[in-house]
Amino acid sequence: MQSDPRVQQALAALDRPIAEFRALLEGALRQAELFLAEQQADEPARVARAAATLGQFGAARIDATRFAALQPGASRADKTSLDALRRALDVLHQMHARGDGLFVAEVVEGAKLGAVVESALSFIGWAFGAIIVTDLVRGGRYVPAEHESLLDPLGFGGWSRSERRAAPPVIVRVAGHAVRATDLASYADGHVKLVLIVDGACAPAPLARLITPGTFVLQTTDGAGLDRVARFDGPAFAAVLPPGAATFVHDPVLGREPWQRLTVTHIPEAPKKAIGAMSTWQMLEELKQLADLARTPFVVPAAGGAGAPAMGASDAADRIASWLLAQSGLGGTT
């Protein structure tokens, strides 16, 4: 699955947010392991650790025993707390061991896209709980009755605002007929970034329904623009679709009006046959939605309006819209 070149391309484009999450995991792991080591450590081990952190220049000149004594000692944790800490560490080690696999999921035949995304995020949510447990134990504030549930996987609905902002990207391989945008809408929050790698026949503009003023949405057939997903400071959806699909990018930072934010580079004809659960009407509706949003206004708004483009229907999106309307038998309104 990870050997798919498109998955590799997405992983590379999303390197920074992935690395940031990985660093977060590592930071938590390191602190927890150090704390655990402190619980069991004897004096020589403590001193050896202190000496190691000083580097060669310092270790040659600084008395490690006295230096170690200056370091704030870890508080003593009870057995229940230490057990919780170990379980939390297990979770974090499991995550760590998954490598890139943590950020890649696949919708197998018969499974639902929404369920796969939810399960991938729940697993990641487990990390947040585990991280908090390590901190509670270190601070001597772990109360089993209150905090035990933190060591279970945590569905996205339960994530805090900060966790939603710390969410790593998830890349999902999915068959075209299983792509349902409505399954994804509830994940548009924080810094959640979902990238679909789509195989086989697919609706031409499945992500059009996800466009909201603050959400970055990208459809591409060659992976172009995935780096912008990584850079966007907010929720983002992207799909790498088979050739022929609509391609567009909706970037919220580009303006207040939909036409300022949305750049459509290709709109195909609507399919003549249903794909998966999507009827031809639904698929046409998505294409029309896209064209509608991209259409520049004809009239410059009253004084104070943002610099709208000059009058005229020469804009590509307008032409597409006219064509689409003609297709659907609703022409004549422009």
Partner: peptide, 13 residues
């Protein structure tokens, strides 16, 4: 080379 490791550690300690 090695002084930089010690320098950081001392600065923080």
């Amino acid at each position: 080379f090695h002084v930089m490791v010690t320098a950081r550690r001392l600065a923080e300690t």
